[in-house]
Amino acid sequence: MASGLNALRSALPVAAALLALLLLWQFGTTALDVPAYILPKPAEILATALGRIGFFGGELYVTLVEAVGGFLIGSVLGILLAVAMILLPVLEVMLMPLAMVINAVPSIAFVPLVLLWFGLGMSSKIAIGALAVVFVVLLNLLSGLKRPEAESINLLRSFGASRLGILWRLQLPAGMPALVTGLRVGLARSTIAVIVAEMMGAYSGIGQVIYQATAQVDSLTVWAAVFVASLGSLALYGVLVALDRKLVWWR
């Protein structure tokens, strides 16, 4: 009961702010007579989204499957790489500079290659999603795994713990918050990368909807698609925040 009230209290400011923004948008565009092809009214966008909810839902589903697929593959790869680098420091010395350089390249720059390699189907989107995630997870987790001080490691060593034992009992749990940060950043990146890749070439998905609607001067569909996409990635983000509480329960 009390927690429900608390939740309400913390949700109130954001609800108020959102409502204020939407009203400003709605009445601002009306008052200034802004045409829909420049900035549609929120009510129209919502009506368009709801009116073709099945269509948008289907396209969003494709995009989310690609984003989540890429996210999962990228995360697992990133985690494995980080663990390998912690266990084999030589690997870190060799691969880290390369990882930093690749991470510095915006993942959209790889879209052309990925489309050529994996075709227009879902696999190219999953690949670009994974690419957008892997280095964020790697870099974050690696710094997290290194967080425990030498003293804690020494304590475990004095108990006779092996390298793997130290990793499992100390470094992995200690690296959890950093991993979660990496996952959060990665999820947002993979969704956007997937949508961009869909725009550049795809059979379906929200990005392709946006691209086609733009070509056909259908700005309401563009905005509705963006709105739906944002709702989708917010939902994913929500799942991750809940996961965060599970993975980092002790804070």
């Binding site: 804690s152 004095s158 100390l170 749990p173 002790w250």
Partner: peptide, 13 residues
């Protein structure tokens, strides 16, 4: 059996 200066308890346990 070794006990370092700081307690070094693991916050997640």
């Amino acid at each position: 059996s070794f006990m370092p200066q700081r307690d070094l308890l693991f916050p997640w346990r």
